[in-house]
């Protein structure tokens, strides 16, 4: 993979990332995912307060040609959503790990983190 993979993040094999701080995590899609999708034109975000189980549909990201469901890498309660993406979804393309984050989750079971990939393992995918 020639794309950017950050050492301080956790990953899933379906190309989501998590930035864990204490008991909360920011979630987004990886540089690889945005580059495969190209031209992200629409994001459907969940409601704040919604409870999700690991593997549930978290949000929908659409490119010109495709509709992709993003699954929650972890169980918990949604505490924040990146509202700015509703106006400028292309931010996910330009800044997948920073301004292009999707949701913040309050983690229900911190042990689930152990199932996620570290940067090295994700790079080898």
């Amino acid at each position: 993979m020639a794309e950017d993979v950050r050492d301080d993040l956790k990953y899933t094999k379906t190309h989501e990332w998590l930035r864990v701080t204490g008991s909360t995590a920011l979630i987004g899609i990886t540089d690889h995912a945005q580059s495969e999708l190209t031209d992200i034109v629409y994001v459907e975000l969940p409601e704040v307060g919604k409870e999700v189980v690991k593997g549930d549909e978290l949000c929908v990201v659409e490119s010109v040609k495709s509709v992709s469901e993003i699954y929650s890498p972890i169980s918990g309660t949604i505490t924040k959503v990146n509202k700015a993406l509703e106006e400028t979804p292309e931010t996910i393309n330009s800044s997948p790990y920073d301004d292009g984050w999707l949701v913040e989750i309050k983690i229900k079971n911190i042990k689930e983190i152990n199932d996620l990939f570290d940067a090295n393992r994700y790079r080898k995918l």
Partner: peptide, 8 residues
């Protein structure tokens, strides 16, 4: 080819 650079 579906796209080269970007559809947009």
């Amino acid at each position: 080819p579906i796209q080269y650079s970007s559809i947009k």
